[in-house]
Amino acid sequence: MTMIGSDKSWKTSIGPIASAELCDGEIYDASLEVPGWSSPSLRDEGWSSVEEIDFPIAKLQAPEGPPVRKVETAKVKSVFKSPAGRIVVDFGQNLVGRLSVHVSGPAGHKIVFTHTEVLEHGEIAFRPLRDCKAMDSLALAGKPITWEPKFTFHGFRYVQVDNWPSKAENQP
């Protein structure tokens, strides 16, 4: 067992993951990436001091099930426009996983990926999601990025892609 202690000498900063929730998805802003943030040579003068708190009294418990791991990469079966003109990606079968996208576009450009298992009248079906958002968003930083959410996964067959950059080399 390895124990890593922390104290008031540690520092903190904002990172690119603004939100991550198992059912709702992940919000990621690539412009907030800090290259080398975990390396000892990082210059952290602009970072804030941490606040030391008491150790939680709740008993920590390891998960009983196996960790989530990538075991297969599913290929896109088709990309089409819905009757309302939305871009929809069809993987050809229901699966559980997350997208991996390679894209470039202007800084601040935000792409939204909404995952569903079925279509209704040719559009992705939000009704079966109930309260689950099943939505990931990616704000670009003005340079190419290969991105996939790290702290969520979704059950889906279809992904509606809103606001994909229009550059010819970008294909959803």
Score class of each variant (00 low, 15 high):
126 F>I: 06
94 N>K: 06
57 I>V: 14
111 I>Q: 10
135 M>V: 03
113 F>Q: 01
134 A>M: 03
89 V>C: 13
122 G>M: 09
90 D>P: 10
68 V>C: 15
49 S>V: 06
97 G>D: 00
43 R>C: 08
68 V>M: 12
125 A>F: 08
121 H>Q: 11
96 V>A: 12
53 I>T: 12
78 S>W: 09
90 D>H: 13
127 R>F: 04
137 S>K: 12
140 L>K: 02
115 H>M: 03
103 V>D: 00
68 V>G: 13
62 A>H: 04
131 D>W: 04
104 S>A: 11
74 A>H: 08
85 G>T: 01
74 A>Y: 10
75 K>R: 07
111 I>R: 09
83 P>A: 07
58 A>E: 15
99 L>F: 00
125 A>Y: 13
134 A>Q: 06
98 R>T: 02
107 A>K: 14
95 L>T: 04
107 A>S: 14
58 A>G: 04
131 D>I: 09
137 S>E: 14
137 S>R: 09
99 L>D: 00
94 N>W: 14
58 A>R: 14
52 E>N: 03
118 V>C: 09
126 F>M: 08
74 A>V: 07
136 D>K: 08
133 K>F: 12
81 K>M: 07
81 K>W: 01
48 S>T: 05
115 H>S: 04
91 F>Y: 15
94 N>L: 01
129 L>Q: 06
70 K>Q: 13
82 S>T: 08
65 G>I: 03
106 P>T: 11
116 T>A: 14
138 L>P: 01
97 G>P: 01
46 G>E: 10
117 E>V: 07
98 R>E: 01
131 D>Q: 03
101 V>E: 00
118 V>H: 13
123 E>T: 08
116 T>V: 14
79 V>K: 04
107 A>E: 11
75 K>F: 04
50 V>Y: 06
120 E>V: 14
137 S>C: 07
106 P>N: 07
103 V>H: 00
83 P>R: 03
73 T>H: 04
133 K>Q: 09
121 H>N: 15
75 K>Q: 08
77 K>I: 02
42 L>S: 13
138 L>R: 00
75 K>H: 04
60 L>T: 05
67 P>C: 09
71 V>S: 13
86 R>E: 12
131 D>F: 07
60 L>V: 03
53 I>S: 11
87 I>C: 14
70 K>W: 05
46 G>T: 05
126 F>C: 03
123 E>W: 08
132 C>S: 10
57 I>F: 03
101 V>K: 00
50 V>R: 12
96 V>H: 15
69 R>S: 05
72 E>R: 15
80 F>A: 08
88 V>A: 00
106 P>H: 09
61 Q>R: 14
132 C>H: 05
140 L>T: 09
79 V>L: 11
111 I>N: 15
100 S>M: 05
103 V>Q: 01
109 H>G: 11
80 F>M: 08
108 G>D: 01
95 L>Q: 07
77 K>G: 02
53 I>C: 14
57 I>E: 12
45 E>A: 09
64 E>S: 07
117 E>I: 05
102 H>I: 05
93 Q>P: 00
75 K>C: 07
122 G>E: 06
75 K>M: 08
120 E>D: 15
108 G>E: 10
95 L>E: 00
93 Q>N: 06
128 P>M: 01
50 V>N: 04
141 A>K: 07
133 K>R: 14
47 W>L: 14
50 V>I: 09
90 D>T: 13
70 K>V: 12
79 V>D: 04
73 T>C: 01
46 G>A: 09
